[in-house]
Write a protein that binds this DNA or RNA. Sequence first.
DNA 1: TTTCTTTTGTGACTTTTGTCAAAAGCAGCA
DNA 2: TGCTGCTTTTGACAAAAGTCACAAAAGAAA
Lengths: 196, 196
Amino acid sequence: MKTSFYPDNYHRLFALFETIYPISDKLKDDIIKNSGVLEVAKKTRLLSSGDKSNAIYFIISGTARIYYLDKEGKESNTWFLFENELLISVYSFYTGNPSFEYIETLDDCKLISLKRERLDYLYNKYMEFNFLGRKLTEYYYMRNELQANELRMLSAKERYERLLERSPALFQRVSLSHIASYLGISRETLSRIRNH
Amino acid sequence: MKTSFYPDNYHRLFALFETIYPISDKLKDDIIKNSGVLEVAKKTRLLSSGDKSNAIYFIISGTARIYYLDKEGKESNTWFLFENELLISVYSFYTGNPSFEYIETLDDCKLISLKRERLDYLYNKYMEFNFLGRKLTEYYYMRNELQANELRMLSAKERYERLLERSPALFQRVSLSHIASYLGISRETLSRIRNH
DNA sequence: TTTCTTTTGTGACTTTTGTCAAAAGCAGCA
DNA sequence: TGCTGCTTTTGACAAAAGTCACAAAAGAAA
């Protein structure tokens, strides 16, 4: 687990921020000072059930997943996240309660990691940073809502077709059993849907 | 549909805000000036599928629901909301795209209504208001995530038991068929679960 | 009260998806 | 090449929940 601080790693993060709200060099410096760049191998566990999540990650490169263990102890994926996305265990990070979910990398990943105390410090020091935080939270909330609604409204087959249409790249990156659990169906059901 | 502006109606909203971040009298005045109090009858449609949502509501009193129509045209509830809660069609309000869902009151309701342009105006004028907005968005996002996870992780029976335990008041207020669709099961299945 | 309407409950049957077990396919490597 | 381990597919069967039809119960209205 290597840690480095080259500002270059922050290029994509700041570019994302700038599409939402202009941020001062002072704030950029402070973000760099209060966070760290992390390189972790494939299959690294970033958070386990029972732990309290105290960090939010920005994925510079790589892929990660969020999953929980069901009653029989089987893994069920709730999200796959890619470069330029924020990675967080929403429930635990926002409530401070122990997590019921796991975060794990699927590939080697380069991440920016920001601890909650540091993030709170930045939010308190730079009020305009809350504009950004609000907008980003709204965006992820909206995505979450959409996903939850699709899980409700669509049949297994429709969910599969929509995912294939919208995220074909996902199928190159993760196994079908991961995709099945993301869709909320068994491996076998997905296999049957695919071979119609 | 009666509109009034008595600041008294804002008492609970401001009390909620103050638990998160102190707000100036100037901001309070501006919130009052830029919003309106709305009294609507039971079963009033506040948003329909296809419309673009342009308002967020705070429920002073009453109950509302958010639902969508499934492929067979049957209503399926995604949320029930009560006094002191925010009422919003997340997808449409945050993206500006037409809604796929409906918002409807279940009782006579007294609401504070804030239009999106006005809200944006306030967010731009008072940076500290974004702190509040961020925190509230985080909270609702977290609740949404929890609900989505329960829909995934639990069986129909477990979802019913958890709802009964956590929101017994809901059962006094809405019909069992509304609750069934909220739980993602048919009316008949809920009836069978209840009579074990 | 009586009537009308809406909501809830029950039985019989169907559909969807899950489970278990075994076979097939495929990738890395000795 | 042929192991070895992992993922995917297939078949037979089971379980969960949905659908349809109708009856019973509860509420609203006259």
